[in-house]
Nucleic acid binder design. Structure first.
Length: 270
DNA sequence: AACGAGACCTGGCAGC
DNA sequence: TGCTGCCAGGTCTCGT
């Protein structure tokens, strides 16, 4: 479910919890990608939530005692409940607050994660190795071009590698490459400096567009009934195999890259 | 160093 | 109505 815009939308939707104090932590099933630390109920009890931030697809929740890392994996979502409700099948983790709010993590596939990062979350092994944020000013065409010099993998695989740049998932990788006119299978080191400039611009624009769309679907995202709240975004290529390209009418093609479905227009992307 | 494949899980859907 | 196989928005780990 979650790519960077969804994660950011989720983070923003949790704002009502800021400055609230934890009354209880419930671990129903610790078996996520890594085990949920068993000390969390003790560690977080009576702690106030001081700050919510994001690094790549991780949400960081800062308390006095340290920071909690949340990752939604493929199928995770966070429901913000105004008061406690009976948990559903895949509701693995709750944080209850004194004012009645419950932050509930639901993740059927359990590829997500709840981790404890202590006082310096940026030093956590999982965060330390991450590339720059795509929306930061430091993520430029010139920078990307330099990083790609020794990479022969397809450009789509390269931009989806979180060690190079975070937050570009399978949907937005295909979309950004379409908007840039770059064939997803192009060897990364064959993408010109000029096209790297275009690609960086389009990655930023694609993510910003989705972020704007996300803002309007916040309510769906946090509905208690668990409406997934996918963005009703119009994709150019993603999931449109066989349908006409919105620019030139050529049927959209699918190819498998890095074991992920990849969508492109063979006419518009070279 | 960089690449590709495999791994982790469950659920939904197409096809028989 | 089963059953089987395939697919899914992520990303770490391992062997080459």
């Amino acid at each position: 479910m979650p790519e960077l815009p969804e994660v950011e939308t989720t983070r923003r939707g949790l704002a009502p919890l800021l400055n609230q104090t934890v009354s209880q932590v419930v671990i129903r099933n610790p078996a996520l990608r890594w085990p949920i630390p068993g000390h969390l109920p003790q560690t977080l009890l009576n702690q106030s939530l001081l700050e919510l931030s994001r690094r790549g697809k991780y949400i960081l929740a800062r308390f006095d005692a340290g920071s909690l890392l949340l990752h939604l994996g493929m199928s995770g979502r966070i429901c913000l409940l105004e008061k406690d409700e009976a948990p559903a099948r895949h509701d693995h983790f709750d944080i209850h607050f004194r004012d009645g709010h419950v932050m509930r993590l639901r993740d059927p596939r359990r590829f997500g994660a709840v981790l404890w990062a202590g006082q310096e979350p940026g030093e956590h092994v999982l965060l330390k190795v991450l590339g720059p944020e795509p929306l930061d000013d430091g993520f430029t065409g010139a920078w990307l071009y330099r990083q790609l010099r020794n990479k022969t993998a397809p450009i789509k695989n390269a931009i989806m590698d979180s060690h190079l740049v975070v937050g570009v998932g399978n949907i937005y990788a295909s979309e950004s490459l379409f908007r840039s006119g770059i064939h997803p299978g192009t060897a990364a080191n064959k993408v010109s400096k000029l096209r790297c400039e275009t690609l960086v611009q389009e990655i930023k624009a694609t993510l910003n567009d989705a972020l704007l769309a996300g803002g309007s679907s916040l309510r769906d995202f946090f509905g208690a009934d668990g409406n997934p709240g996918y963005f009703q975004q119009e994709y150019f290529v993603y999931g449109r195999t066989g349908q006409p390209c919105k620019v030139c009418g050529t049927p959209i093609k699918t190819v498998r890259l890095g074991q992920r479905s990849t969508f492109f227009c063979a006419h518009c992307q070279r």
